[in-house]
Simulated assay, not measured.
Amino acid sequence: MSTMTDNSEEPFPRHPLRPPPPPNYTGRIPNTLLSIVFIAFLLGGTCALGALTFFAGGFNPWWATAELGFFAAAWSFFHWGEFAVTAGWNFEKCSVDSYLLENGSMYHIAHGTAVLEYLVTQFFFPDLKKPYRLLSLFGIIMVILGQTLRSTAMIHASTNFSHAVAFRKRAEHVLVTDGVYRYSRHPSYAGFFYWALGTQVVLLNPVCFVGYALVTWRFFSRRVRAEETALVKFFGDEYVDYRKRVGTGIPLVP
């Protein structure tokens, strides 16, 4: 992507360190260094507060405080990590949108509902979760592995990765089939899928776990179909053969 040279197309001249907006930049949040730094500050503070709550909860008789702390830390780190990885390995597509905070109202409603289910259960039905507390540890492992898989996939794909589905092949676009892509055609999707489910296991939210599973599976099954239609056009038999050898890593999404 060529950088913009005519400053008349922007309300203010671009600072030399300001990342150029990618083609899919929406403009809903100003793409400025101030916005980027401010969001990073908020996410970092939330992550630190959540981590402190998590570790302090380990020494608290009411250990459940740690669960919500871990959720807050995992959520904020995920969004910070999306920007950090994009800035480090895919700067051409980096903008304030890379934080993925503009995922639509349903995305934020889902997380809000998860917190609500946790709080309602914790304050009104605390005995329901006591026999299953150790499951939270399994959820923590799911979150860490899911985050690691997604970030590794983004780093390995580098400039071939895009948060938005690309329907036009760029000259430098290549098919990545090594590294983590040797085991999953869409490791970033699989990583987020297990990350999302892991957060609900941590919170011991049975209702939201089912809801997250259904919604994320439906979203990624549709997105995989749309994306792979484009990939077949881009790479032809090379991608068809790759698809035969390697699955997605998401249950029931071939």
Rank of each mutant, 00 (worst) to 15 (best):
F161N: 01
S98A: 14
L100S: 06
K129G: 13
V246G: 01
T26Q: 10
P131E: 00
M154Q: 10
S95V: 09
F55Y: 11
L128K: 10
L137P: 02
I140Q: 11
G50H: 07
S184Y: 08
L17W: 12
N7Y: 09
E238Q: 14
N7T: 08
G45C: 14
N205Q: 00
V120R: 01
T177N: 06
R222S: 13
F41L: 15
A66S: 14
F38V: 15
L42A: 13
P19V: 00
K93E: 14
L49G: 12
L101R: 06
N31K: 08
E117V: 12
G139V: 08
D178A: 14
A72P: 05
L52W: 11
Q147N: 12
F235H: 01
R168K: 15
T65W: 11
F59E: 01
F123Y: 05
A51K: 00
E228Q: 06
V96F: 05
Y242M: 02
P254I: 10
S221V: 12
V143S: 03
Y99C: 01
T86W: 08
H111E: 00
F124I: 07
P254E: 06
G139H: 02
Y239I: 07
G112A: 06
F38S: 15
F167K: 15
H111I: 09
D178Y: 08
K93T: 07
N7P: 10
Q147F: 11
P126A: 02
L17A: 12
F235G: 00
G45R: 10
Y181H: 07
V253P: 04
P23A: 12
H111C: 01
A56H: 15
L149C: 09
L116V: 13
A87L: 01
F71Y: 13
D241C: 10
V96L: 08
E172F: 07
A66N: 00
S158F: 08
P206F: 07
P21A: 11
Q200C: 11
Y212M: 12
F219H: 03
L145Q: 07
A64M: 09
T159M: 04
G57I: 07
E82W: 02
T121I: 12
V120S: 04
T248P: 00
F234I: 01
D6A: 10
V202M: 06
L42Y: 05
F78W: 15
T199R: 11
A157D: 02
F123R: 03
C47V: 07
T248K: 03
V210P: 00
A74C: 05
L49H: 13
I36Y: 02
